[in-house]
Design a protein around this nucleic acid. Structure first.
Lengths: 151, 151
DNA sequence: GTATTATGTAACCGAATGGTTACGGATATT
DNA sequence: AATATCCGTAACCATTCGGTTACATAATAC
């Protein structure tokens, strides 16, 4: 299995995300995440968005451009003002990718629970250390049940 | 509200993620996402991971280093082999950030549903186009109810 | 002991990134 | 009409990024 990367090009299918890559890239930057956060309640003009940050206006423009390119914001002109409105739809792709890892957390929780329960049945004969001991043992559980020793 | 960015440094609190930034940065790259995907079932040696990709071994090493730095993988040596195992915990931070946008999708779904229902009451007199028409109209609904026309 | 395998590190490179100042077109205000 | 405001674009810059080849060390195989 030799993986050819960056094949998820959504194109202008829905006029939204250009690619997975653009979306993931866009949210990788903390400034851009903060911009999106600030847009989550309502659309805002560029100048207002820029006022949130201690960087230059053109720098913010660039970030907004990247977000637009990723389909995460939509721009409408109102006179000399450009209003930016969020479009969260492309983030579904991020959420989709996250799905399997979400199930890992769940699997880890189940493994911890089972471990604690099996520990509790042992602890019925060693009472005073049992709570501290089970807490420590839970740390040793791998993620998603992945064995440390390979085949 | 002037936002000071990159303040989410988790440090060695739990020995896991170094920062939000490192995690978001790590998953921004499609190769690194693919590496994580390939590790989701079990731990694997570096060479096996590298075989999945049409890039050089040192390039893969670099990616693995970035993932390690973000706390997304753990490394154990087995003789001359280095086994990499996933740790999905730092992705919780990504999931947490995503939360508000997930609720936007839900809000959009509610708006669509209400729109379709109000549309259906109209469609009681124009039956054949109603399903196609309601699908088209749903496209016009803003994200999270954000009005296109600003105040 | 020698040869092979596993894999990280260093140095290098071209492209990309996230910032800057200067400038200019469009719109609003005086 | 003159001036002010809004905000994008261009050009520039230092840094980072994701790749490469060359090299070296550690572990395993023969």
């Amino acid at each position: 299995m030799v993986t050819d990367i960056d094949t998820s090009d959504f194109g202008p299918q829905s006029g939204r995300p250009r690619s997975d890559r653009a979306v993931f890239d866009a949210i990788a930057d903390p400034t851009r995440r903060a911009i999106l956060d600030g847009l989550s309640g309502r659309s805002r003009p560029a100048g207002e968005i820029a006022a949130d940050f201690a960087i230059s206006r053109p720098a913010v423009s660039k970030h907004l451009r990247a977000l637009e390119g990723a389909g995460l914001v939509r721009v409408t002109k109102e006179g000399r003002r450009r209003m930016y409105e969020i479009d969260a739809e492309p983030l579904r792709e991020v959420d989709r990718w996250m799905q399997r890892y979400r199930t890992m957390w769940a699997a880890k929780l189940v493994a911890i629970k089972q471990h604690v329960e099996s520990r509790a049945s042992l602890a019925s004969s060693t009472s005073p250390e049992s709570s501290a001991g089970s807490s420590g043992a839970a740390e040793q559980v791998g993620d998603g049940g992945t064995p440390t020793g390979a085949s």
